[in-house]
Design a protein around this nucleic acid. Structure first.
Length: 287
DNA sequence: AGCCAGGCAAGTG
DNA sequence: CACTTGCATGGC
């Protein structure tokens, strides 16, 4: 595979890939990779991408255009511009320094969707386990440098898997979400690429046509896969932090709170969600 | 041994 | 539309 290099600034690969937004990247271990630098891999259009984080930037091995890797990792996002569009807010300025280098990823739609279908009433490490078990059981395997790399199955493949088989993998009641949603994706004319050109609210409603997709899961997929940087997934953590730090933004319903948060923070509210609430979660902010 | 976790669908009033 | 309830499973 071709080796390429991406110079980076204000980017922390490990933080970006392990903060809980993506389940599609995997840490690579093995003698070739144990030189002190973090290595991760993912797949794009069925082709492996291996990224090594160094002091100066990223060493990338892939057959894909390097621009694909940049966009996958949020390296096209102009953080100066993004932070300049926020309202004046002490918490936010603080968070940029404390959570330095965190960027919002752009994952492939289907793996992203399925991982968040698994997320209700579940902790992050278990979502990752479910994701990995589906990838190992039904996905293709590629071996690079003696390392087995598992690609997540396509919708057409996963739609052939019965709900019971998914339950046997430990997916629980979310197995039904996956079984029915993969049917919709393969049998009906649900084209994810159409959503990207929609207005945010329209896209969110369209996402909710998929079984198991409510407001929160829809917002996650819109933010982490479909380039809606204004999307602000409100999970229990975000909700609690809002109650403490921005009670005036909390409404009577998800929709209401979502609207007032986006109204206050603006077109990059998704980045607020990542920075502010990650900081709060890690106990970095006094809120 | 309960209790709870990145919510959601389905069923009522 | 607002409110309630059941839901699979593993970790604490």
């Amino acid at each position: 595979m071709r080796k390429q290099f991406i110079e980076t600034e204000e980017f922390d690969l490990e933080l970006t890939l392990t903060c809980g937004q993506t389940f599609s990247w995997h840490r690579v271990s093995g003698t070739l990779y144990e030189d002190g630098n973090p290595h991760f891999y993912t797949f794009r259009d069925g082709k492996p991408v291996i990224v090594e984080e160094t002091d100066r930037g990223l060493k990338v091995r892939t057959e894909l255009e390097i621009s694909r890797v940049r966009s996958a990792l949020g390296l096209d996002h102009d953080l100066d511009k993004i932070f300049s569009r926020f309202p004046e807010d002490e918490n936010l300025e603080d968070a940029r320094a404390r959570v330095e280098g965190l960027r919002i990823v752009n994952d492939e739609f289907f793996p992203c969707l399925i991982s968040y279908l698994c997320s209700p009433q579940m902790r992050i490490p278990r979502i990752k386990k479910m994701y990995n078990s589906m990838a190992r059981e039904y996905g293709d395997t590629v071996t690079v440098d003696g390392i087995e790399m598992y690609n997540f199955p396509k919708a057409s493949r996963l739609s052939e898997v019965s709900e019971q088989d998914l339950r046997d993998l430990g997916i629980g009641y979310r197995a039904k979400y996956i079984a029915e949603t993969t049917d919709i994706l393969t049998e009906e004319s649900f084209r994810p690429e159409d959503l990207e050109n929609m207005e945010y609210e329209k896209a969110r409603e369209r996402m909710k046509d998929l079984h198991g997709v409510g407001n929160k899961v829809a917002d996650c997929v819109l933010l982490f896969s479909l380039n809606f940087l204004q999307s602000c997934p409100i999970d229990t953590w975000v909700s609690n932090t809002l109650e403490k730090a921005y009670p005036e933004l909390v409404g009577e319903s998800y929709e209401e709170t979502s609207a007032s948060v986006r109204d206050y923070f603006g077109p990059y509210t998704g980045y607020v969600q990542e920075y502010l609430f990650h900081a709060a979660r890690e106990g970095m902010l006094d809120i």
